[in-house]
Amino acid sequence: MRFGVVIFPGSNCEQDVIHATRLLGYEAEYVWHGDTDISGFDAIVLPGGFSYGDYIRTGAVARFSPVMSEVVRFAEAGGPVLGICNGFQILAEAHMLPGALLRNRGLKFICREVPLRVEESACKWVDLPAGTVARIPINHNEGNYVCSPETLTSMVAKGQIVLRYCETDGTRAPGGSAPNGATDDIAGICNEQGNVFGLMPHPERVVDPVVGGTDGQPFFTAIVEHLAEVAR
């Protein structure tokens, strides 16, 4: 199992992803944003950071990197793609996932651990039972997910809502539990096929128990198990 972790100019979480995946016993290598060959990788991760300084809009420029046409092709062939934070913003800008990520409602950069509820979804990156509450840090200024009401209805129907912000007991506050104001408390979504997954929280930061948690581990192990199952 070999993860490819794409580095864009301004990415800053690529080492965390490499560390997390290697710690779990998988192979992981960096992929340069100018690369046009990503064969040899079983899964691609777009890490967090501030690609191209977040200029114009977050992810708007990174989307046009040479490597991205390959990532699109890889995903269309069913290859698993994970976008974390800025990676999620890039996937949204590339229209690989619906909707967009706006500035946080409170205009503040938010960096803290939050409870997240796993939803029943088609996502191949998650095999936790629905209702599981995971504690994972968020670290962003533009995490306020928006989409049209029609898109939301369709995503709910097709099981594309993967993670929602929630209270510590897994319930959602009547006024919303998203610290960034995200529509319907959405923290992570997948495409209809479930192989492309984007989330604002950073699961790679809670893989090594040394840094205070392991709730991020299942997000990397699930896709490996899924691929192993497909291969059988």
Partner: peptide, 8 residues
């Protein structure tokens, strides 16, 4: 393509 995002 780039300067505006038609989604939002």
């Amino acid at each position: 393509k780039l300067l505006a995002n038609p989604v939002i």
